[in-house]
């Protein structure tokens, strides 16, 4: 499976490299586009010193962590959300006749390494934010745990949203509201949102475990919404649960696949 994944990634990368100019422009464009989010945070902080009770470095820490997780998930698996295009064009059929998991084929479909630009960007922002923060040495271990859990959670969200497209082939934008919506939500401290929304993204769709709960531990902050302290150690569990739900949804989707047209 991993071997096949790498093989397909390499093939698509070579296909993309046939257009070097486009490749460069898209890499740059992707980075500038990601930079816009940073610009927005910067504009906000030219007007205030705290947002939702968090300072610039803390917000950048949360943003960097979310961005790193999201961009990595997007790079590695984000293409699954093109499933409805493939269903409508009939090209999903050609994936089903190969002796390779359609998930691996979808995840690598038209893989473009320029998304790596945003991974680097997230990592750099996270590093800069950490250099401005005073994180005690015994809490640093949570950072890799947080990023890895975040990658799994975002991937699961993507797969979940893509599985829905087996049913709602005409409405791929719904997946977008889940994935991009999730990315936007986690860019800011959850303390800016209402208590109901925070409970929703803690206990229903566990986006709070991407960066917020483990981030509170790293930053050594009280939870402004007063949720229990032990929640901040649950990111790996939340990630595992999400991965399970997403895998089941994907399998159900494939089983209900109805090839269209001729």
């Amino acid at each position: 499976m991993v071997r096949t994944y790498v093989l397909l990634v390499w093939t698509w990368t070579r296909a993309a490299a046939q257009y070097p100019l486009s490749f460069t422009l898209m890499t740059l464009g992707g980075m500038v586009l990601g930079g816009l989010d940073v610009a927005v945070i910067w504009v906000i902080f030219t007007n205030t010193t705290t947002l939702g009770g968090f300072g610039l470095s803390e917000v950048m820490f949360l943003y960097g962590a979310a961005c790193l997780s999201f961009a990595t998930a997007d790079l590695l698996f984000g293409n699954v959300d093109r499933i409805s295009q493939h269903i409508r064009a009939g090209t999903f059929d050609t994936m089903l006749i190969r002796p390779v998991s359609p998930f691996v084929q979808m995840a690598t479909d038209r893989f473009v390494p320029y998304r790596a630009g945003r991974v680097v960007q997230g990592a750099v922002i996270l590093a800069i934010a950490l250099s401005h923060l005073d994180v005690p040495g015994d809490r640093v271990w949570m950072i890799p745990v947080m990023v890895l859990s975040g990658i799994v959670i975002f991937t699961a969200v993507w797969v979940l949203g893509s599985a829905v497209q087996f049913l709602l082939t005409d409405a791929p934008d719904l997946t977008n509201s889940l994935t991009s919506g999730g990315a936007t939500l986690t860019q800011y401290p959850l303390s800016v949102y209402s208590a109901d929304l925070v409970r929703g993204v803690t206990f229903v769709l566990p986006l709070a475990f991407v960066n917020w709960q483990p981030g509170l531990y790293v930053l050594g902050r009280e939870d402004p919404s007063g949720l229990p302290y032990w929640l901040r150690f649950l990111s790996p569990a939340a990630a595992a649960a999400m991965a399970l739900v997403a895998a089941l949804a994907w399998r159900t989707g494939i089983r209900h696949y109805r090839s269209t047209g001729s």
């Binding site: 296909a15 046939q18 050609t94 190969r98």
Partner: peptide
Amino acid sequence: REIGVVFGQRTTLWWDL
């Protein structure tokens, strides 16, 4: 592995390679 499939209307080849 037991069958070969050809769709006249769509290709399974890599367009740019």
